[in-house]
Simulated assay, not measured.
Amino acid sequence: MAEDFLVKNKISPKSIDILVVNCSIFCPTPSISSMFVKRIGLRSNIRSYNLTGMGCSAGLLSVSLAKDLLKIHKNSLALVVSLESLTHNGYPGKVKSMLLTNTLFRSGGTIILLSNRKQDRRRAKYVLQHLVRINMGFDDQSYTCVFQENDEEGHVGVSLSRRTMHIASNALRTNMVRLGPLVLPYSEKIRYLWSLFLQRVCADPKSKQYIPDFKKAFEHFCIHSGGRAVIDAVEDNLSLSEEDVEPSRMALYRFGNTSSSSVWYALCYLEAKGRVKRGDRVWQIAFGSGFKCNSAVWKCVSDVDPTCSLNPWSDRIHLYPVEVPEILDT
């Protein structure tokens, strides 16, 4: 996949200056980043990073690391590989909270090429405008809601707490508070501040805190496909429509929870449908163990080809969306 990606974009492996790889569960020796250096033939002096154990939000965390490195290293290319491999990490035990990972998670991966070179501006598809990261690890319940541990029989598995959705909602609200001032129009900011004034200064018992309409800031939403409950929670918190969450629901239906790469599968769905237009803004929302909520805001700056052969949806996008049976939509 990596070789095809570089050939398609006419990029020489020797021109890659930064490599960031993330994979939460699978952590071999040599590292996956070293495997990429050998397989693709990257330079010996490449700045290589291998992130593990960062959960489903690690894809945007890797983009954040690459962004910070590109601020320092001018005229550079950064290759970000976001993947998950579950082959060696199936749970063989009987604890129900750990068995869910066997049925929900799937292997998957994506490659993103970031650049700060002037000559790449004309062929770039998106510009990264904002990236907001939230880590709730200071809270005990947040820290343990997605937790790898041994069961009573000694089997290693990942346990999912029943409070995960509540914790995810709190993390999302915290992220929204920090992201809102960066992206919301002035009308929404004023309405939000006015509701706070009525509540805290005037102590008006009838007033409720206003939740800003983020649909006025974004045209598209790519939510981490962590499960039906995750998508439902974000849909309710942001008052989104079925069309807004369709990319994430279809990504979950076809590919399962591909962990850190799921937000990219959702974006590829939008591209294959031809919905992303020049000037559109896309909000990617990812959740992960720790507990983390990361947001990335991208602005489309060129015409996107919906028939791209590297798009995982291009061969059957005409079959979607589909009506998901209740028994499968979990």
Rank of each mutant, 00 (worst) to 15 (best):
L86I: 13
S48D: 01
R39W: 04
S48I: 03
V37W: 01
K38L: 08
L79P: 02
L60S: 13
L69F: 11
H73Q: 12
A58H: 00
I40G: 01
R47Y: 14
A58P: 00
A78P: 09
A58V: 03
S44W: 06
V37G: 01
R43F: 10
K71M: 07
A78F: 11
S76T: 08
A58M: 02
V63F: 06
R39H: 01
R43W: 05
G53C: 10
L65V: 14
S44D: 08
G59Y: 00
K38I: 11
S82N: 14
V81A: 02
S64D: 14
N75P: 05
L65G: 05
V81Q: 02
G59C: 06
F36K: 05
G53Y: 09
N45S: 14
I46L: 08
T52S: 06
L42S: 05
L83I: 05
A58K: 00
L70F: 10
K38D: 13
V81R: 01
S85R: 07
S76N: 08
C56E: 00
G59P: 10
L86S: 06
L51Y: 00
L42G: 06
L69R: 11
L51S: 00
T52K: 01
K74N: 10
G41S: 13
M54W: 07
V37M: 02
S76M: 11
L65D: 00
V63Y: 07
S85N: 05
A78W: 03
A78K: 09
E84T: 02
S64R: 15
T52E: 05
I40M: 07
E84M: 04
K71A: 08
G53F: 11
C56W: 00
L83M: 11
S76D: 07
L79G: 10
L86Q: 03
G53E: 02
L83T: 09
C56N: 13
S57Q: 07
H73L: 13
A66M: 15
K38Y: 13
L69V: 09
I40K: 10
Y49H: 12
L86E: 03
L65M: 15
L61E: 11
T52G: 07
G55H: 06
L60E: 08
K67M: 15
N50K: 01
K74E: 10
K71T: 11
N45W: 09
R43S: 08
L61M: 14
